[in-house]
Structure formats: C-alpha cells, structure tokens
C-alpha cells in the first residue's frame, strides 16, 4: 500500500507495472485517473492550484486504503495525488488497485476515490480570466460516499 503527494506528473503504465510486478496471484488491476477540466462552475479554467495539509493528507489516504481493505480483497493499492499548479487536461490523481478478481478491484477503486473526494485534505483553486476562486464542495460527492454505507 502506498500513497504519494507530489508536484510532478506520473506515468500510469509505469506505476501499474510496478504495482503488479512479481505478484502472481493478481488477476485484476483497476485504475482511475482524474484530469483537470477546462470548464467548471463558472468560466473557462486556465489553471488550477491544489493545496493540501502535509502529514494529514498521507495519513488520511492510508486510512482510506485500510478501510477499503476491510471490505474487499485487495492485494495492493496505490494513490498518487498531485499538488501545486496544474493546467487543463493534466493528470491530477491516480488510484490503482490490484486484486485476485475484478469485482473487488472495481469496488475498492471506486470506494477509495469517493472517500478521497470527501475526506482527504486537498483544496482546489481555479484561475479563470475573470479571477481566481476556491472550488465549492459538491453535494454529489457526499452522496457518492454515503451510498457505500448501504451496500457491500
């Protein structure tokens, strides 16, 4: 299990090959990559800046993975989240989960992403031609997280 918070971009292919290397019991890898959109709540987004809480961020991401492991069979999991300035179309986040079977890998990956959205201390600030503003929370993110309380 590992989490990384970094300024630099990441190579999804490389990260997945590292994650599954010499684990012959793995039958499935599910990964999610989040990207910067150029259009959000208001205007055209020219740049995004991500702030986080060093120390708590890593701890909360590890706690989310640990929680996923109590619900599904997870062989290994990796979260990479970028911080600092980001341009539209750049990669922000990678969640990759390996498991013996795809069902566990799909569910755990989605669960980790939903919890990351509401529990991990990251904040996005959008820069538009009209000025900069902090991104507001979406209630759909809370709903996405809460549905895990009602299903397995």
């Amino acid at each position: 299990m590992s989490v990384r918070v970094q300024l630099e971009d990441f190579d999804v292919g490389f990260e997945i090959s590292q994650l599954r290397k010499s684990h012959n019991s793995i039958g499935a890898v599910v990964s999610f990559v989040g990207l910067v959109r150029d259009l959000n709540e208001r205007d055209t987004v020219t740049q995004l800046t991500l702030e986080h809480y060093p120390g708590m961020t890593e701890k909360s991401l590890m706690a989310i993975i640990a929680q996923a492991k109590t619900r599904w069979h997870v062989e290994d999991a990796l979260i990479i989240h970028r911080v600092g300035p980001l341009m539209p179309n750049e990669q922000i986040v990678l969640v990759a989960v390996t498991s013996a079977h795809r069902g566990d890998a799909f569910s755990a990956c989605e669960f980790i992403m939903d919890y990351l959205k509401t529990d991990a201390p990251f904040w996005k600030k959008e820069i538009t031609p009209q000025g900069a503003h902090w991104v507001e929370v979406k209630s759909s993110d809370d709903m996405a997280k809460n549905r895990w309380n009602n299903k397995n």
């Binding site: 986080h52 509401t118 201390p121 990251f122 902090w134």
Partner: peptide, 10 residues
C-alpha cells in the same frame, strides 16, 4: 489543531 474548508481534491 487545523481549520479548513470542506475538501475539494480528486
């Protein structure tokens, strides 16, 4: 102790 707005990562 830390204070911050609701989180918006991912």
């Amino acid at each position: 102790v830390a204070f911050f707005p609701p989180v918006t990562g991912g």
